[in-house]
């Protein structure tokens, strides 16, 4: 039964996120006063990529592409989706963060295995950016975990039940801001799309991918977005029923899109300086407030 639920979660993640990707492209187009693609354009792109031929650059290249897709799909199974948990008791924050790293490392391995210098530069930038956004995000979430004494995401969702006044968005506003900025870094949205900069380093890690391999990496990106936005919705917006969860998900994702549609791109050292200045300071203040005063955890309304 757990496996069936997991399979269902993967199908839902694919259909919902790829549809929303089409709407996201439409929203970006509207911001830039264009017409934009049809809403099902991303389905067409992914299926087209799988219908093309493909070449290999060696065993590591193929294995890494499979490892990144498999690792990310496995992570989708562990993330609570509006209260649905496939493997009970394993919906732990640390499980998700570690499994998500499997996907990133698989991609790094595969891209470096292609032998293209642009890919190495892109991977270096992606891992540097990861160091940038993970530290503030982790400090906020560790403060939350310390306050409640549990790292289970379902438990963290349950304490936010009963109206929007209980959401962590209002209980820990600084933490929510840091979480959202880190989310934009995780999604590689516009100010933080340094690792895949098409004009500078020819799309970075993706430079040697074509055909079916590129389709696999596009799928991996969709699943990774589903996990990252889902993590934000669960931790800060209180999960909710299926409809509420999907509405919150769409709101967060489209808000990030609207911000990214009007911004330029940071250089990689600007990304790290940026994350280590304001978000890190805010996350430390938030963690101190939660740990020393209990405001937002024990003391709330």
């Amino acid at each position: 039964m757990s496996y069936l639920i997991g399979l269902m979660l993967i199908v839902i993640a694919f259909l919902w996120q790829v549809t929303l990707e089409g709407f996201q492209r439409k929203v970006t187009a509207k911001v830039q006063r264009r017409v934009g693609p049809r809403w099902y354009q991303t389905f067409m792109d992914i299926f087209k990529a799988f219908s093309k031929s493909s070449i290999s650059h060696g065993f590591i290249y193929d294995f890494g592409a499979m490892m990144t897709l498999g690792g990310t799909m496995a992570t989708v199974v562990f993330l609570p989706f509006s209260g649905i948990v496939a493997f009970n008791g394993l919906d732990n924050f640390f499980v998700i963060i570690y499994l998500l790293a499997v996907g990133s490392l698989g991609m790094a391995m595969s891209a470096v295995g292609s032998g293209n210098p642009w890919a190495s530069i892109g991977v270096m930038r992606a891992l540097t950016q990861m160091v940038g956004y993970e530290v503030p995000f982790m400090i906020v979430v560790f403060g939350m975990i310390f306050g409640y004494g549990t790292s289970s995401i379902s438990a963290l969702v349950e304490v936010q039940a009963g109206g929007f006044l209980n959401w962590h968005l209002l209980r820990m506003p600084l933490g929510a801001i840091v979480g959202f900025i880190s989310l934009m870094g995780m999604l590689a949205k516009k100010p933080y799309d340094t690792p895949i900069a098409p004009a500078e380093i020819a799309s970075g890690p993706l430079v040697e991918y074509g055909g079916k391999h590129l389709g696999m990496l596009m799928l991996q990106h969709e699943f990774a977005v589903f996990i990252e936005v889902g993590l934000f919705v669960n931790l800060f917006l209180g999960g909710g029923g299926i409809v509420a969860y999907l509405i919150k998900y769409a709101a967060v994702y489209l808000f990030a899109t609207i911000i990214s549609a009007v911004l330029g791109r940071f250089k990689i050292e600007q990304v790290v300086y940026h994350f280590y200045k304001v978000p890190l300071a805010l996350s430390l203040i938030q963690a101190a407030v939660v740990i020393f005063t209990g405001l937002g955890v024990e003391i709330w309304l």
Partner: peptide, 20 residues
Amino acid sequence: MTSRFDMERIGMGPMATPRQ
């Protein structure tokens, strides 16, 4: 490609490398 004639509405887009 850009706002005036918007190639993306018929499903086209620029890609960075020949492989893609």
